[in-house]
Computed example of a mutant assay.
Amino acid sequence: MTAEMDPVQRLVNDMLHEIFMTLGKGDPCDLARASCVSRGWHEFVISNGLSKQLCLKMFPQLYGVDRVTESCSFKSDGETGSSNTKEWDVLEREHRVYGFLSHCARSIVDRECISDAISASSTDNFPEEGINNTLEIRDRVGRIASYWSSKGENNPAVPETLIYKLVGDLGVITEIDIQPFKAFFQRGSPIYSAKSVRFQMGYSKASLDLDSVDQSCHISLNDKFVWTYTSPEFPMAQARELFAEIQVARACSLYRRIPSC
């Protein structure tokens, strides 16, 4: 389509911006399709970062994302005059990645994110006090207490680690809820809470099959994961309360490498 035949080229930039953003609200893929109509549309959508703007409007939790990367690089097609510049390459990358996120995230519903418990760094009495108990909301099932207990360390600075598998390949974590266990069966009903907690998001390396991990073998799996996000440490009170609204870096974490090719 030539500029003479394209009516959009006759509109002012503010009006063009509204048209394209409205187009993308129904389906983010429509914005990507529009960018393929002509060179002019392609340049306008990418140079103004419309895919990124649309994604952030849909999911403001992603405002804290520092940068985006792709698992493989794309080469410019050389058709656009500025396509060989570093700035244009960054804009094209953001166009692809944020467009992908918008498309995938529309199918995400507000629900529990954990699908399975993978392993604990230690367990006092396995499986009675195993990590699977942490998936149970109740503190007792029937007359049996439901909790996870580590073996304990003489040095309180030694950390314990719990690893979980999430429900999907792509997700946005906005809140994590933790409730310390109150040992109602012990004298004084003591509450066992951590001094502090922190969270990591990432993905397993190709050499690790999560379904084959033996929970009874308490070995460190940290080197089997690529951690793409680590939160600050959050102190915990020794109280039997649901510690909610622990915001994970405000922007949340995407827990998978985004496939780009």
Results as ranks from 00 to 15, higher is better:
residue 191 I to P: 02
residue 259 P to E: 13
residue 106 R to Q: 12
residue 50 L to D: 05
residue 185 F to M: 11
residue 191 I to V: 14
residue 74 F to P: 06
residue 112 E to H: 10
residue 4 E to K: 08
residue 173 I to D: 01
residue 48 N to F: 12
residue 67 R to H: 09
residue 80 T to H: 04
residue 222 N to V: 04
residue 119 S to L: 03
residue 20 F to K: 15
residue 192 Y to D: 01
residue 64 G to K: 10
residue 152 G to I: 04
residue 94 E to A: 10
residue 207 S to L: 10
residue 41 W to N: 09
residue 126 F to V: 07
residue 218 H to C: 15
residue 188 G to K: 00
residue 181 F to Y: 14
residue 89 D to M: 03
residue 221 L to E: 02
residue 160 E to T: 02
residue 224 K to P: 05
residue 43 E to A: 06
residue 254 L to R: 04
residue 147 Y to D: 07
residue 245 E to F: 10
residue 176 I to E: 02
residue 92 E to N: 05
residue 178 I to P: 07
residue 236 M to V: 00
residue 192 Y to P: 05
residue 62 L to P: 01
residue 105 A to T: 01
residue 236 M to K: 00
residue 195 K to H: 00
residue 221 L to Y: 00
residue 201 M to Q: 12
residue 248 V to D: 04
residue 194 A to Y: 00
residue 124 D to F: 15
residue 51 S to M: 12
residue 89 D to H: 06
residue 114 I to C: 01
residue 238 Q to S: 12
residue 140 R to M: 08
residue 232 P to S: 03
residue 75 K to I: 09
residue 215 Q to M: 11
residue 194 A to W: 01
residue 185 F to D: 15
residue 137 I to Q: 13
residue 212 S to I: 11
residue 167 V to H: 08
residue 124 D to S: 14
residue 193 S to F: 01
residue 196 S to G: 02
residue 238 Q to Y: 11
residue 117 A to Q: 02
residue 182 K to I: 05
residue 2 T to E: 00
residue 238 Q to H: 09
residue 147 Y to V: 09
residue 29 C to Q: 15
residue 29 C to S: 10
residue 229 Y to M: 07
residue 90 V to N: 11
residue 195 K to F: 04
residue 89 D to L: 10
residue 247 Q to P: 07
residue 148 W to R: 01
residue 69 T to M: 14
residue 184 F to I: 13
residue 44 F to K: 10
residue 65 V to S: 04
residue 44 F to M: 02
residue 179 Q to G: 08
residue 117 A to F: 07
residue 194 A to I: 00
residue 40 G to K: 10
residue 49 G to Q: 09
residue 155 N to S: 02
residue 254 L to M: 14
residue 61 Q to Y: 13
residue 114 I to G: 11
residue 187 R to V: 07
residue 96 R to A: 15
residue 66 D to I: 07
residue 162 L to N: 00
residue 118 I to V: 02
residue 50 L to S: 01
residue 226 V to L: 03
residue 27 D to G: 11
residue 45 V to C: 11
residue 221 L to W: 04
residue 184 F to K: 09
residue 96 R to F: 09
residue 166 L to H: 04
residue 157 A to P: 00
residue 12 V to R: 07
residue 249 A to S: 09
residue 243 F to Y: 12
residue 37 V to K: 08
residue 74 F to N: 06
residue 181 F to G: 11
residue 29 C to H: 13
residue 92 E to A: 12
residue 107 S to T: 13
residue 260 S to C: 13
residue 148 W to I: 00
residue 216 S to M: 02
residue 123 T to C: 08
residue 247 Q to F: 05
residue 14 D to F: 13
residue 250 R to D: 06
residue 252 C to E: 03
